[in-house]
Amino acid sequence: MMRFHRDHSLLYDGLAPCAVTGLVRPVRGEAGRERHDEVVSEFRGLFAALQERHVPFDVVPAEAITAMAGAGLDRYRLLVVPDAGPLDTDTARALDAWVAGGGRLLATGATAIGADGQVQLDCLPGERATAELAGPDALRSTFVAAGPRSEDADVPIGVRAPVVPLHGRRHEMTWRRDAEPHLAVLGRAPFGPPELAYGNAPTGEPGYAVRRTGAGVAAQIPWSVGRAYRELGVTALRDLAVGVAVDLLDGAERLSADLPEQVELTVGRSGAATVVHLLNQTGVRRAGMLAPVTVHGGVLRIRNTHRPLLVRALVAGMECRVRTEVDGTATIAVPPIRRFEVLEVWELPAQP
């Protein structure tokens, strides 16, 4: 990999990130040890979720948001803020202004909830946290689901997928009047004989809510969905969080991939070229590395491409096959990925 970097120094000298999604990294050492570990777990869970679903993103330091206000933040369509807790006044002001100007914000856990329970961001759908439920005893046998399977009284009680466990911390919220609720929190099932205990019933609380403010949109998941995914490994938790993020992006991310979850995707710009890095992590273990399994049959798609594309696979040393559909979506056949692959994508002049 270092030899590859040496041999393509011109490509890397001008390489800059260009993802339209930013994942905010928590401030180090700001909270106590236990709380800090929870926040880091939330961040790492959402990091893994976006990575495994191949949503390109940059890591944005929380302490840099104020300095990035304006042009620095405007290049992002979506910011994901994981369980950040109380925000300082300047950071809250910068995020509110960015959303009002057209940004999309996803806040999870206790993000922007002050010590008094008041929500510090005017753009968020939550107005105030009225209670905090934390730990296995408080959240045991509670879930988030899509809602009742049927309103018909003759149909057995049930809920629609997804059904995901609550884990870590959850805040009960007072929501603003214009908040749009989604999903439903299911309370603990009553203990008793089967003829009296009918399972988990909705509490009336949404799993998350969305609010439109100014030209932008903000979503709030008032529980630690990233930490739950990292510590439980339930992929439905990952898919729920990433689904909310993709809905907020609303098609702003042009690049998508059909690749195994073990392939990490990052995207950047070098001059006029888009540079896509594909890192094969099939050999990654908790400690150490094994030889990776070669990944075959990968596909990249770039939407809204109405000019011919030239795509070079720099590791394989070949030109990739590109097929452009009538809707402007370019489908790129990725060569076998052994350890890693780097694709250089050029838009060619339109043909007369």
Rank of each mutant, 00 (worst) to 15 (best):
H54I: 05
L79Q: 03
A241T: 01
A107Q: 04
V20I: 14
T142Q: 11
V234K: 12
A49V: 08
G102C: 03
A31C: 10
R285V: 06
P336G: 03
Q120P: 01
A257T: 04
V284R: 10
V275P: 05
T329M: 02
T108L: 05
A71V: 11
V263C: 04
R35E: 13
M1G: 11
L309R: 10
T111K: 04
V27M: 14
G283I: 02
C18L: 13
E38A: 14
G187R: 01
P352I: 09
G32H: 07
T329L: 01
I337N: 06
M173S: 00
Y229Q: 10
L121K: 00
A19N: 07
G45D: 08
L240Q: 15
D116P: 07
A197T: 08
V119T: 06
D154L: 14
A48E: 13
W175K: 06
L50V: 02
H54V: 09
P202G: 03
V299F: 11
D239T: 14
L133I: 15
T266N: 07
A287Q: 14
G45H: 06
V315N: 05
H171N: 13
V144D: 07
G135W: 05
L290R: 12
V225D: 09
P61S: 07
P56G: 07
V119N: 01
A287E: 14
V345P: 03
V342W: 04
G226S: 06
T213M: 15
A16F: 15
G207I: 02
L10A: 14
V267E: 06
D154I: 15
G328A: 00
T66K: 07
L11E: 02
T282I: 00
D90L: 14
E253R: 11
G271C: 09
V155F: 13
G288Y: 00
E42H: 00
D96H: 03
T213I: 12
A291M: 11
F340N: 00
F191A: 11
T331E: 14
G72W: 02
G251I: 01
V27Y: 12
P86C: 02
E132F: 14
M1V: 06
D154W: 10
D327V: 01
E319K: 10
V159R: 14
A84D: 07
G207A: 03
E231W: 04
V345H: 01
Q281T: 04
E52C: 05
R301S: 13
D137S: 10
H36Y: 13
V267S: 03
L79R: 04
L309P: 09
A241I: 01
T91I: 07
A316S: 12
C123G: 03
P336N: 03
G192A: 10
G207E: 04
P202S: 02
A131W: 06
P335H: 02
T66I: 03
E127C: 12
E52K: 09
L124T: 03
L237C: 01
P162D: 13
V210E: 10
G271R: 04
F340C: 00
R140K: 14
